[in-house]
């Protein structure tokens, strides 16, 4: 964070490339952050399907819910870019509207994530022993273990926490650190929103302040695009595709 907010009001010196220092810094930072998420994603993939006990991704994931939260994050990217466009056009009012929308959408995404983490941690299993339908492997295991003669259903808490298994460990730390990035972004954008009420705080001439925040925000969005595909949708496979 500190790197990214460095010297906000660098005066526009003449530079070798004609580009702004801070914008170059931002892009180098984003390139570096790619490696950060790559390491987390690699850890997730390396351990995929290696958990010794459940729950597995398919037991806890709710693709419709995550699709909605993905949609929310994508929309926040749109509102962010519209905020920037409004500022370039000189519409401070439009800027405030859109940037506030971005903050709200971003917070909504975080809300979804909190909800999801809570749901996973308190995952409830209900197995109808008499008429079992569509059991996952994990549920089948529970079925075999618990559904004996005379038992007509099985109910239990089988929550997923970072301690539960390798899937829990890698999933929570990957998405949690992404969530941390989103949180920092929300704080940053909120600061810009508040700052825009200070006279001369946010002006079309100083659009770079917003541009940098926007780049960061969109990056967080593209990381989620990858996480959504790799973590959630690849979840159909319990293990290696071999």
């Amino acid at each position: 964070m500190a790197e990214a907010t460095a010297s906000n009001h660098e005066s526009e010196h003449q530079t070798t490339t004609g580009l702004n220092h801070r914008k170059i810094l931002m892009w180098v930072f984003l390139g570096s952050d790619c490696m950060f998420f790559a390491t987390l994603i690699a850890t997730y993939l390396v351990y995929k399907g290696k958990s010794l006990s459940g729950p597995m991704p398919l037991d806890v994931f709710s693709i419709p819910v995550t699709t909605v939260s993905t949609f929310v994050l994508l929309m926040s990217s749109m509102s962010m870019v519209l905020a920037y466009a409004a500022l370039r056009k000189g519409s401070l009012k439009g800027y405030r509207t859109w940037i506030l929308s971005t903050v709200i959408l971003g917070s909504t995404f975080l809300g979804f994530q909190t909800f999801e983490f809570y749901e996973f941690a308190n995952h409830h299993v209900h197995i109808d022993c008499i008429n079992p339908v569509d059991l996952t492997d994990y549920e089948q295991g529970l079925f075999d273990k618990n559904c004996k003669d005379g038992v007509d259903h099985y109910d239990a808490q089988h929550g997923l926490t970072p301690k539960t298994n390798l899937f829990g460990t890698t999933f929570f730390v990957l998405t949690g650190l992404h969530g941390t990035h989103v949180t920092i972004g929300v704080i940053w954008l909120m600061s810009l929103f508040l700052y825009s009420f200070k006279k001369g705080g946010v002006t079309p001439e100083r659009h770079l302040d917003t541009d940098l925040a926007a780049l960061y925000w969109h990056f967080v969005d593209v990381v989620w695009i990858v996480i959504f595909a790799v973590v959630y949708l690849f979840g159909v496979f319990e293990g290696f595709p071999s």
């Binding site: 950060f36 390491t39 460990t169 730390v173």
Partner: peptide, 25 residues
């Protein structure tokens, strides 16, 4: 350096979580 350090940063985070919060990395 900017490409290599994020890798150790994540590895150290993972180790720290293992030590402090009982994760399984």
């Amino acid at each position: 350096l900017v490409l290599a350090f994020p890798v150790i940063t994540v590895a150290l985070i993972e180790l720290m979580f293992d030590r402090s919060f009982g994760t399984n990395f």
